[in-house]
Design a protein around this nucleic acid. Sequence first.
DNA 1: GCCACCGGTGGC
DNA 2: GCCACCGGTGGC
Length: 188
Amino acid sequence: MCLESNLEAHAVGGVLLGRRGKANVPKDSIGAYAVQCGKCYKWRLIPSKEEYETIRETFIEDPWVCEKRLYTSCDDLADIEYNTSNLWVFDKPNIPKAPPGTQRMLIMRKDLSKMDTHYIMPNGKKLRSTVEVEKFLAAHPEYKESLPLSRFCFTVPKISEDMVPKNLEKRASSLRRKKRKADVEEDN
DNA sequence: GCCACCGGTGGC
DNA sequence: GCCACCGGTGGC
């Protein structure tokens, strides 16, 4: 189950800093993970996706605060400022952690219009929706216990609007317009 | 033939 | 209006 977040006060974020990762390791579009302290509202970087997903999983009932991190307090400077030098996307809180053996991938569209969620299953299969997960589990009953349907959530993060470069937005939409126009002309 | 990628839409 | 979902396809 995915719940609505309160983005203003207390947020779970992913920061897009470009793609990284070793060869052969599946990587998504998120370059850095950050959470906002529930007390001082400063942003703290979370070193791994795994740790980030753990925090995100129980974010509502167990909000993250600076003291949770060793040697960190609200008096310390923020790790990262929410600003326009990075593209930020904001996760919904309480998304189940990707079940063991799977990876939850978030892929940004080239035009920054939206993200797509998919899961990489233990056998390498990529799944794009809960319906596809259902079908997968029906075909592979051996996974039914370790990978219950309820642990999959395809909710996408919200893209921070003010940070999408305006010219890029325009370019993308004008390309779309151009294509539509060409299609219409083709039909005539 | 596959698959990453994108566009479109039904249901809310 | 949003978003979860899926069909189509271009490039390989």
